Simulated assay, not measured.
Amino acid sequence: MLLHSRATSVDSAKSPARAEEAGKKRSARNAFEALLPKLVLSPTLIITLVFVYGFIVWTSVLSFTRSRGFATFKWAGFFQYARVWEHPRWHVAVENLGIYASLYVVLCLAIGLALAILLDQRIRAEGYLRAIFLYPMALSFIVTGTAWKWILNPGLGLTKLFHDWGWTSFQFDWIISDDMAIYTVVIAAVWQASGFVMAMFLAGLRGIDQEQIKAASIDGARMPSIYRRIIIPQLRPVFISALVILVHLAVKSYELVIALTGAGPGYSTELPSTFMYSFTFTRNELGMGAASAVMMLCTVAAIMVPYLYSEMRPRRSGGGH
């Protein structure tokens, strides 16, 4: 009995120490688990801060200088921005961007919505068709531009194909035409992106409550009316998301234009991105190239910031509180 009581007293004396030690281990483990995500993400965060936002700041600083190469950094205020706006090539680039972006966005939305509605009919081989329509988006813009350059080449591609079929009067020479070359860029860009827009719309269509559609059908509404009054209005968030993505892609388009037309013939397919690259890396006018890059950044920010604000803003509950 005496030994048992002594053992019990020793165990009871050790219990607080063991509990304290277990608590310390638990606290250390919790602290490590809380720190681990920060340790894992910190390299990516540092790289992003330096090579994205750091270079944005550096480009903005360069845009206010008379930099030619890395030799001179004389402060110039808004001189480079004035030069950009007065340059005739910039006006051509902005005009081409207006044509290209407008047609690109409208055609991608129209074709994407039409393909999504087609696939939403639960047709046979839907999986294969969806993969075929999505495949172009898996290609790089360089590959797309090179392929379409061959297809649209007056001596090869479509023209040669139709000539081999005996249609010798067919001559598709848009790619070498000053007035029509920009439309070849639109064709290639729409071919690549319309499948991606289709996938966005198809996801939106599959998320619509089918009970509303059934109720409208029972009430005698025809399918065109159902799409116009019920389905398409509910796709508004998808329309906005697709619009933002497409405009963003259009503003920064570079690889496709260079691979397809080389910004030519002449400067007929010049875009702000090719203008920026030419003056920065070909003419070595860093200040002017940086000014055009900042103007492109402001254009993209004017589109993205309101969209991100609307998406991140907390939604109010339906109770009106």
Rank of each mutant, 00 (worst) to 15 (best):
V238I: 15
L119V: 10
F64M: 12
S317M: 07
G54L: 02
V247E: 02
H91N: 13
E20Q: 03
L235W: 06
G23Y: 05
V92I: 15
A193L: 07
R222F: 08
E95V: 08
W148E: 00
W165D: 09
G77W: 05
H87K: 01
Q234E: 12
A114C: 15
P154E: 14
Y100V: 01
H4Y: 14
T72R: 11
E311W: 03
F55S: 05
L45D: 15
A101R: 01
V300T: 14
Y307A: 00
I117A: 10
A242D: 01
S5F: 04
G157F: 03
S140R: 07
A203Q: 05
A302R: 04
R228Q: 15
Y267V: 13
A193W: 05
M223L: 08
V244H: 02
W165R: 08
S5D: 06
L49W: 06
R130G: 07
V106E: 10
Q80M: 02
P272W: 03
H87E: 14
A203T: 07
S27G: 05
A181F: 08
Y104K: 05
I187Q: 01
C108V: 10
T274K: 00
A199V: 15
F78C: 00
L161R: 02
M137E: 14
A199T: 12
D164K: 06
G54Y: 03
F170M: 01
F73Y: 12
S253M: 14
P154M: 04
M288S: 00
Y135D: 09
V94Q: 02
R122Y: 05
W58L: 04
L243C: 06
S268M: 06
A181N: 06
A188N: 05
T269C: 09
R26E: 14
V294F: 03
L129P: 07
V84F: 06
E255Q: 02
L161V: 04
I218L: 08
A82R: 04
I213R: 03
T280G: 02
E33F: 11
V294H: 01
F281W: 13
L97T: 06
F78Q: 11
G77H: 02
V40S: 08
D178W: 10
S310W: 09
L161C: 07
A93N: 03
Y100N: 00
G54P: 10
P233E: 10
G23P: 12
M180S: 10
A193G: 10
P314I: 00
A259I: 15
S177P: 12
